[in-house]
Amino acid sequence: MLLIKCPYCQEDRPEIEFSYSGEAHIARPLNPDDLSDEEWAEYLFIRSNRRGLHHERWLHAHGCARFFNALRDTVSDKFELTYKMGEPKAQVKK
């Protein structure tokens, strides 16, 4: 069971308190009607499914109940970094 540092609680907490919420930094378009069918489909369905460092959304469901962003390695499973919603997208170091 992983430990995940919640950026709101500022604590390492056990994984079972959390739940995964899909890829991060995919903002809902402000004016969906302006999007073509293809663009909308892209927003709805297309995800990067990355091997290695991946931007993810997690929810501290049984904790502070906040969604936050994380950079996690999908190979080792480990979290590199977690940060609050609204903070800039974490850069992946090469």
Binding site: R28, R57, L59, A65, R66, F67, M85, G86
Partner: peptide, 13 residues
């Protein structure tokens, strides 16, 4: 509830 919270927190803060 979770979906409502998701939109509330992340799309329309």
């Amino acid at each position: 509830f979770r979906m409502m919270e998701d939109y509330r927190q992340t799309e329309w803060p």
